[in-house]
Structures are given as structure tokens and as C-alpha cells.
């Protein structure tokens, strides 16, 4: 008991540290990426390649005055940023970084991530509402209607993968894709998927939904600066804003983790389980895939312009949901016949 309790504490500590470090340095990564795609240097002044920028930003945010505008609903206003950060932290507990590195093996790992993502969307709502600011409220309603719309195809696509892998546990889904790059669920004609030709489309749906779920450009309608000042966190200053920002980046990491595990084999080595190759189950492969996906997120954000809210919702309700439903039915039928 004592040992397992200690393990749990260490795991939670590592999860928090990982989330914090990622949230801080993804901002740096994003700004460098933005600079790269727009042909400018990005942060350069503080430290080599601007690497000291995130901690300095953190100090700046923490030392700023925490302004609470008059007329806000104080209790909810203060709780909302915490609520934005906390689901992301909980979700990290169940993510397997390798076959052995996982804080807590829970049988319904996929469900846990989606359940707490739902709590996260609740935080956007109460943040926008408690600010007593029209722009913040419009933004939070937009953000949540978007999250609700894209949660459906995301869930259906995830169910498709769960059906193929036969498990709701993330580490088992990853383990089912071991043995080489051709076993990853991103490819068509998998034997375990009943030779389904639509797996790459599933992957695309999953990818687009992850971008939309994290409210990132080109789907960042909730933060459309030209229309809504700054979005649901308009009234937040200091670390209140900082927590929203960190929560956003933590959610990006979780989205990328999910894509990695569900479609790219998790920690599985792309060259198969070669006897002479020592790191075939290594956490390094996981992180490599993870940051590759995050790089594509950054790439997309600084390449495409923002869509409109109707275009965004139509894309989900008219195309993504029917497509993902069709794919789910097809996969179920094919598995019944072939696998």
C-alpha cells in the first residue's frame, strides 16, 4: 500500500511537471514556428534561441496584478481558470508513454479523457458567463457549440478504433499496433480492421476534430480577435489568463497523444520488433510522434485563415458526422466478416 501510494504521488508529480513544461515550451515552439512560417525570427532576445522566454513570461504573468472587474461573479470567475487546467492534468494520468510508463492503468482510459474534456468545455462556459462581458459570452457560446459539435465525430472515430483494437484501454490499443509501421491504424487494408479502406479518412477526421476541439486556428472562432476582442478570457489578467493559456496547450498535447495512440501506434517502433534494436518499446518513439503532430498543428495554425462559424459547424454536422458514422458501420460489418 505505502509503495503504491508513493508511486501514485510520483506519477502525479511527473504528470504535473510534464504538463507544465510542455505548456510553457510549446508557447516558445509555437512562436518559433510562427516565425519560421512567416519568415521572421520569433523570440531571440532571452537566452540562446529565446529559450529563456517561457520562464520569463511565467514570472511576468505571476507578478502582474490580478484584476477582478466590478460586476463579475467572483466565485465562479476565480474557479473557471482552475477548472480549465485541471481536466488536462487528470487526463495525463492515463496516457501510456511506453509499455511501462503509465501513471494509472484504467480500463476505460479513452472514456476518461473524453469525460474530462467535457469538464473543460464547462470551464469555458462559466468563464465567459461570469465575466459579464458580451464578447466573452458570445465567445464562450461559440467555443462550446464548436466543442460539442466536434466531440461527436471525434467520439465516433475513436469508437471505430476501439472496435478494431477490442479495448478501451489506451495501452492495449497501442500494443495492438506493435510490429512495424504497417500495423498502425492509419493505413488502409489492415487485417484487424477487416481490410477497411477508409482508415486514412478516419485519421483525417480525428485530426481535424482534434484541431477544432482545442479551439485552434483555422477553427479558433472563440478567439476571433477581430470580432471578439480576445475571446472568453477577455477579462482575465495575470495568472488567470496564464492558466487558460496553459490549459489550452495541455489540451493540445492530449489531443496529439490521442492521435498518436489511436492511429500511429503509440510507443511502437516503426521498424517492427527487431531483436537487435534495443528501443523498440521506447518512450522516445512516442515523444517523436507526439511532437511531430504538434508541429503539424502549429503549421496549420500559421498557414490557414480563420473559417466562419457556420462553415465550421456545417463541416462537422453535414460532413464529419455522417462520414464517421458510415465508417463506424462499415468497420463493424467488415470486422464481423473478415476478422
Amino acid at each position: 500500500m505505502e509503495l503504491s501510494l508513493l508511486n501514485a504521488f510520483i506519477a502525479v508529480f511527473i504528470a504535473i511537471a510534464f504538463v507544465g513544461a510542455n505548456a510553457a515550451y510549446l508557447v516558445w515552439w509555437e512562436r518559433k514556428g510562427a516565425g519560421f512560417f512567416q519568415r521572421r525570427p520569433g523570440p531571440t532576445e532571452n537566452g540562446p534561441w529565446g529559450l529563456l522566454q517561457p520562464p520569463l513570461d511565467g514570472i511576468k504573468l505571476m507578478t502582474k496584478q490580478l484584476l477582478i472587474p466590478g460586476g463579475v461573479d467572483k466565485a465562479i470567475f476565480m474557479v473557471a481558470p482552475v477548472l480549465a487546467m485541471f481536466p488536462a492534468l487528470v487526463s495525463f494520468v492515463t496516457i501510456p508513454f511506453s509499455s511501462s510508463i503509465q501513471a494509472h492503468t484504467i480500463e476505460v482510459g479513452v472514456l476518461l479523457i473524453f469525460a474530462f474534456a467535457a469538464l473543460g468545455s464547462m470551464s469555458l462556459l462559466v468563464a465567459g458567463w461570469s465575466s459579464r462581458n458580451k464578447y466573452a459570452m458570445i465567445s464562450s457560446i461559440r467555443a462550446v457549440s464548436q466543442t460539442v459539435a466536434y466531440e461527436i465525430p471525434l467520439l465516433i472515430t475513436t469508437i471505430t478504433v476501439v472496435l478494431i483494437a477490442g479495448s478501451l484501454e489506451l495501452s492495449e490499443i497501442a500494443a495492438a499496433q506493435m510490429g512495424g509501421i504497417w500495423n498502425w491504424y492509419i493505413w488502409p487494408f489492415q487485417k484487424s480492421a477487416g481490410f477497411n479502406i477508409f482508415m486514412p479518412i478516419s485519421f483525417m477526421i480525428m485530426f481535424i476534430c482534434s484541431v477544432a476541439e482545442t479551439n485552434r486556428a483555422p477553427f479558433d472562432l472563440g478567439e476571433a480577435e477581430s470580432e471578439l476582442v480576445a475571446g472568453f478570457h477577455t477579462e482575465y489578467s495575470s495568472m488567470g489568463f496564464g492558466l487558460f493559456f496553459m490549459g489550452e496547450y495541455a489540451n493540445i498535447v492530449i489531443g496529439a497523444c490521442l492521435i498518436t495512440i489511436l492511429f500511429l501506434g503509440g510507443w511502437a517502433c516503426p521498424f517492427g520488433d527487431l531483436g537487435f534494436f534495443p528501443f523498440t518499446h521506447h518512450v522516445g518513439w512516442f515523444l517523436l510522434k507526439l511532437y511531430l503532430i504538434i508541429f503539424v498543428f502549429v503549421w496549420i495554425r500559421w498557414t490557414f485563415p480563420r473559417t466562419t462559424i457556420y462553415g465550421l459547424l456545417n463541416l462537422s454536422w453535414q460532413y464529419m458526422i455522417p462520414l464517421s458514422l458510415f465508417n463506424l458501420l462499415l468497420t463493424a460489418a467488415l470486422i464481423k466478416v473478415f476478422a
Binding site: 480500463e107 469538464l119 462550446v144
Partner: peptide, 28 residues
């Protein structure tokens, strides 16, 4: 754990979000 996750997913993620939409859109 399955029931627990479903409780959060359905009641918080769906029911409460729907209620809050109703509140906010009906009477800002």
C-alpha cells in the same frame, strides 16, 4: 470506473452544457 466516466461524460458534458445553453441563450 465505467459508470463514473459515463456519469461525467453524459451528465456534465451533455446535460449541464445543454442547460447552460438554455440559460444563456434564453436570457442573457
Amino acid at each position: 470506473p465505467f459508470m463514473a466516466m459515463m456519469q461525467i461524460l453524459i451528465y456534465v458534458g451533455a446535460v449541464c452544457v445543454t442547460i447552460s445553453f438554455a440559460i444563456m441563450l434564453a436570457s442573457p
